[in-house]
Write a protein that binds this DNA or RNA. Structure first.
Lengths: 343, 343
DNA sequence: TTGTATGCGTTATCAG
DNA sequence: CTGATAACGCATACAA
């Protein structure tokens, strides 16, 4: 057992190996122009001294932090899914990943992010929704240019790299399926207006309804939040109307679970009396009874692509496409059935 | 709009303010011995140049990284809860928080962690279960001494700082409650042996059963995993026996949700025919139907205390108690009822 | 109250 | 192939 009073530095290694620090540096960084003989000597010295390069010194001289930042809004299913993938990537990569909360338009959030960039703590940035709804993020890029990749950007204009799921397509698929089952009175529980996905999913729903020439008006669209309470409340409202829906399509699984709960509380059987769908395929949606029919939003792939996109940009790779759309997939579970008009 | 070619350094500020870099340094770090007049001049220069100290340089010279690391095993409800609190703290503190996956006994995990410490990327460490079941963590501390706080340590011996919930007490409360409702055939779904909580919760259950002189043997304890599938499978097994339980106490909410699902799949009514309890009070347990009766495991508080404990240690504060136990609290929801012996 | 000089541990330049 | 030496940007002992 060796005791470490002070960590060894490159100088110590050089002294022990009988060479210059530059040579040690070469060995550390796998540079050429070192004899196998000296390389071996240096490696032995490194092992002997239990040497590891001081990361701060390296960062200072290289003017890079080897840290990328992920901006995340609050906590929830979506964020958990993002996090778990991000950590996986952090485990594989040499970059450290700094996860930071960001609340759009909050002064403190802006300040935090500004200093993160300004103090050169981070080399690049990935945003998740809805962190980019304020203009601050894009402004930031004009002043201090730092590579950015957006996950599901609020605004797709411009040529900023992004990765996004196919929300429009997914919502169409769900709605089509419900229509196939004979449903016409389909309620859509929308999310907040500052979420790209919320908007696109609503368009998908509308498009499917229209393509089947089902008469509908905006009263079939209930604005709520993309969370349990939002879905719960909206469902209660929908079911209290004189013309009740035979199916509820929640714009997110969290809201879908709220809908499920509300219906069960009302003693309405799912799917016998009312069908319910969600969107996202959250980890939990297959664990309710009945399981929630939903669209698989490939958050894993999205996060992975976005992060590696940023990493590639930082490594200076030439990339052909920096704007990626990942397809969605229908997931049928027990919460939907053929229409029951006696509701 | 100012354009930034190269970021300003402390020298630039000094030059513009007409003083030495030491004076600038004093202003930045809120040190005394600066006239209000010069302070103002410096501050103006800082604003004008849009200056921010280079964090790497500071870290190098101070021999500190101002980063703490949280070790996390895989992903799940528990981890999500930890993460959301950790991010909140990171948002408030000046330390950056590096979240790292750690799989006990995995060579790669060890290597990652070793270099994290070795390269002085982190100043301190917080472990969450079951990251500390291998001896590696404690070994690490003997070789390279870095402050460590353990959340729910596997092994409480020694004087390493830790924060833990009162699992024993909580499990006793749940079991007592079930017994009050007339239950005697209470099945306990245990978790893995490498989880401190799993062991303590099982002891609590046993203690309550014994204190009420209810005859039981080990067949009433089913070993499973602390997740949905574990609870699901164990429940199916329990309900297939000739002597069926009237209540199922799952050692975790995730397992409890699995139990709920299994019973519903079997067409067994909860709580009319069988009562179900969990442990943790996971975010989702109130969103199932019926809501899951459980014990509130104050993960928020635990994470908060642990993190601030580490921060205090790093700041060199004198602390009276570094080993903290946080009490639990019963949460009654719809999943339990008086015993129904006709099962 | 202010400033000078030195060092932190790397990487990079450029001459040997 | 190798090695002096100069940055990198900041903090800090020590002067003034």
């Amino acid at each position: 057992m060796k005791k470490i009073n002070k960590a060894a530095t490159i100088k110590d290694v050089a002294r022990l190996a009988g060479c210059s620090i530059k040579t040690v540096s070469r060995v550390i960084n796998d540079e050429p122009y070192v004899t196998d003989e000296t390389r071996l000597k240096v490696q032995k010295a490194i092992k002997l001294l239990d040497y590891a390069p001081n990361i701060s010194a390296r960062r200072l001289v290289q003017q890079r932090s080897y840290v990328i930042c992920i901006l995340l809004h609050s906590a929830g299913f979506y964020q958990s899914a993002v996090l778990s993938k991000v950590l996986e990537i952090g485990y594989e990569q040499n970059y450290d990943i700094l996860i930071q909360n960001y609340y759009p338009s909050h002064a403190k959030s802006k300040k935090k992010l500004t200093s993160l960039i300004h103090e050169r703590r981070i080399d690049g940035l990935v945003t998740t929704p809805p962190c980019d709804v304020d203009e601050f993020i894009s402004e930031l890029l004009t002043t201090s240019s730092i590579p950015l990749v957006q996950i599901t950007p609020f605004n797709r204009s411009g040529n900023i790299p992004f990765v996004i799921g196919d929300d429009y397509q997914g919502a169409m698929m769900v709605t089509d399926r419900l229509i196939e089952l004979g449903h016409e009175r389909i309620c859509f529980l929308s999310g907040p207006r500052n979420h790209r996905t919320s908007i696109d999913r609503q368009y998908g729903y509308r498009a499917a309804m229209e393509s089947h020439q089902i008469k509908m008006d905006d009263s079939w669209i209930l604005e709520s939040e993309f969370n349990f309470d939002g879905g719960y409340t909206a469902t209660k409202i929908a079911m209290s109307r004189s013309v009740k829906p035979t199916a509820i399509f929640a714009g997110s699984d969290e809201a879908g679970l709220g809908a499920l709960y509300a219906l069960q509380e009302l003693g309405i059987k799912v799917p016998e009396q009312v069908s319910v769908c969600g969107f996202d395929d959250a980890a939990h949606s297959k664990h309710t009874w009945p399981g929630l029919t939903t669209v698989h939003h490939p958050i894993d792939q999205i996060v992975e692509k976005a992060t590696y996109l940023l990493l590639d940009i930082l490594d200076g790779k030439q990339l052909e496409s920096v704007q990626v759309v990942v397809p969605s997939r229908l997931v049928i579970r027990g919460s939907i059935a053929e229409v029951n008009k006696n509701i």
